[in-house]
């Protein structure tokens, strides 16, 4: 598996990243090296093997659906670059 420029642009869009023109060939090569390394997993016979998503799939916990913490609205809004008293502010989306 290896990618070309067009595929790099698609991946960058999925990742919400911009690739500077000067970096395109370096990043393409760098990702292709990792993808070549990843190919090794196809050497494994995984027929009838159950995927392992997590080491603790035996004890996933649940709790009652109850409010356990009070509002931290002001502290959290204060972390944003732009906010008013009740909202995060972003560029206009709807004309």
């Amino acid at each position: 598996m290896s990618i070309n420029r067009k595929e790099l642009e698609e991946i960058a869009a999925l990742a919400q990243l911009n690739i500077p023109e000067t970096q395109v060939s370096h990043i393409t090569e760098s990702l292709n090296q990792v993808m070549a390394m990843i190919e090794h997993i196809n050497d494994a016979n995984t027929l009838e093997v159950t995927p392992m998503a997590h080491p603790n799939d035996a004890w996933q916990l649940v709790r009652q659906d109850e409010v356990t913490d009070s509002s931290h609205k002001n502290e959290l809004l204060a972390l944003a670059a732009h906010a008013d008293e009740d909202h995060y502010l972003v560029p206009k989306v709807i004309e």
């Binding site: 991946i11 999925l14 990742a15 990702l31 990843i38 494994a44 998503a53």
Partner: peptide, 23 residues
């Protein structure tokens, strides 16, 4: 991030992400 976005994308999920979970 880009490697991950690729591995989780349509067409590669089963071949790479699920395969890696089996490994």
């Amino acid at each position: 991030i880009m490697i991950g976005a690729w591995a989780l994308s349509s067409g590669y999920y089963d071949a790479y992400y699920l395969k890696a979970q089996k490994v």
